[in-house]
């Protein structure tokens, strides 16, 4: 924990009447990091975020965002922070999208020139030009989410907090959003804290994962480490042309299951150790492969394993 951490919590606690939503949470995030914050529903993710952003008063403990107490110095923290709550909007519903950017620019005390330049850049990168004149209420969910993220990034914040940014989006919209975020972070060095139910978000965006369980930190480390801890591996399902003996000798992969005399075999493998292509090449050199599917570890499963490992339900 260094002095210039962008997020720092120590023994952070928040109670809601008789329930403890966040329980002695201690972690810190350094500038430039991209951190995925995951856990089951009701595990305490949103509560933590609300305390980090100064919306919610901690019951006890210590919290600093951009080095400041977010509850006491709300306005200063708000200037350095961009937040998107997937289920809430920060845009002006009745006005054309363009107006939301103008107003937000003024709220963040940007001059007209820089508001315009920054808006143009974000609009171009997020491909939202055609929607600028559309009232926000008429945007599709995918368009609105992109607009929300542009709005959160307008004032070039040091820290971007995204709460379920891809919830409800189709595959293509998710993909575009992730690509944009990767590029934006690459250019601006923005620190990212992200909560999500989508393992794809974590894989593509985050280099560090925090898992929260019943308000407590259950895991803090890299995604690879997480996969290693819980054995959450990807599964390659191969349909073979004819009955095949068990594929026990594929480097980096382990046989999980073999059905119908080896017509369908399931191999688990660790993305860090090998690739789908390598496994497939190895198998195809010996047997004829007719079809294949890949099963991604799902976040709920990863979380469940973490919980099981830490001796909880």
């Amino acid at each position: 924990m260094s002095a210039d951490s962008i997020i720092e919590t120590r023994e952070l606690v928040r109670d809601f009447r008789k329930t403890r939503a966040v329980d002695r949470m201690t972690f810190s995030v350094e500038p430039g990091e991209a951190v995925g914050y995951i856990g089951a529903n009701g595990a305490g993710k949103s509560t933590t975020i609300k305390m980090l952003t100064g919306i919610l008063k901690p019951t006890s403990g210590h919290v600093r965002t951009c080095g400041l107490d977010p509850m006491r110095r709300r306005v200063e923290v708000a200037r350095r922070l961009g937040v998107v709550f997937g289920q809430r909007s920060q845009l002006w519903w009745d006005l054309p999208l363009r107006d939301s950017f103008t107003i937000l620019g003024a709220i963040h005390r940007m001059d007209d020139g820089s508001t315009r330049a920054r808006t143009d850049l974000l609009v171009e990168q997020l491909e939202m030009g055609p929607q600028l004149g559309t009232p926000v209420r008429s945007l599709s969910l995918g368009q609105r989410m992109r607009a929300e993220i542009a709005a959160a990034l307008l004032h070039s914040p040091e820290l971007l907090i995204l709460d379920e940014p891809t919830i409800g989006l189709d595959v293509l919209s998710k993909q575009r959003l992730r690509e944009f975020l990767v590029a934006e972070r690459h250019e601006q060095g923005t620190t990212l804290l992200l909560t999500t139910h989508d393992m794809g978000d974590i894989e593509r965006l985050c280099d560090r994962v925090l898992v929260v369980d019943h308000g407590r930190l259950a895991f803090d480390g890299t995604l690879t480490g997480l996969a290693g801890t819980v054995g959450a591996q990807r599964i390659l399902v191969l349909d073979l042309a004819g009955p095949t003996p068990d594929l026990c000798d594929v480097p980096g992969a382990t046989l999980v299951q073999s059905e119908s005399d080896g017509l369908r075999q399931r191999l688990s493998f660790d993305s860090a150790a090998t690739t789908v292509a390598a496994v497939l090449a190895h198998v195809s050199s010996r047997h004829e492969v007719r079809d294949l599917t890949i099963e991604e570890p799902d976040i709920e499963d990863v979380v469940r394993r973490i919980y099981a490992a830490s001796g909880r339900d």
């Binding site: 709300r74 708000a78 922070l81 809430r88 920060q90 005390r109």
Partner: peptide, 10 residues
């Protein structure tokens, strides 16, 4: 949604 209002520096 009032939370969003508190996230603005105004």
């Amino acid at each position: 949604d009032i939370a969003v209002d508190f996230l603005r520096p105004v």
